[in-house]
């Protein structure tokens, strides 16, 4: 059902956890639907220096979360914004058709975290 890469990320997820005082956080999905993804990012000089996730969901949800964190670490915000559900799924050698919405969530959570960071930056500028 799942590619070896999916199983690898599911069994040994990278970057699980929370970041203390993150630069930005994103959370998508809800428990009623059966999947929630939370992503924290740390940003320095426009670069994502650290990223962590917590996910409630199926193997695809966990694997895509793990994969997305690996894909963005060390990338610029602009590069991170290019990541789509499609690129996450491809990086995992594909997902079963019924699981495509999980990869959707991973990219969405990342973009939500970046947006959160941007908003905070904008607020800082506004205050100063």
């Amino acid at each position: 059902m799942y590619s070896q890469k999916v199983m690898n990320h599911f069994m040994n997820p990278r970057n699980v956890g929370r970041i203390d005082l993150p630069s930005g956080s994103g959370e998508v999905g809800n428990a009623v639907c059966g999947d929630i993804m939370h992503i924290d990012i740390k940003v320095a000089d426009n670069i994502i220096t650290d990223v962590k996730f917590k996910t409630f969901g199926c193997a695809a949800a966990i694997a895509t979360s793990s994969m997305v964190t690996e894909m963005v670490k060390g990338k610029s915000l602009q590069e991170a914004e290019q990541i789509t559900n499609q690129t996450v799924a491809e990086a995992l050698d594909g997902l079963p058709p019924v699981k495509m919405h999980c990869s959707n969530l991973a990219a969405d959570a990342l973009h939500a975290a970046i947006a959160d960071y941007m908003r905070k930056e904008a607020n800082k500028l506004g205050v100063s």
Partner: peptide
């Protein structure tokens, strides 16, 4: 383990 990954 799974709960360790869960945001809930």
């Amino acid at each position: 383990n799974l709960r360790g990954m869960s945001p809930l």
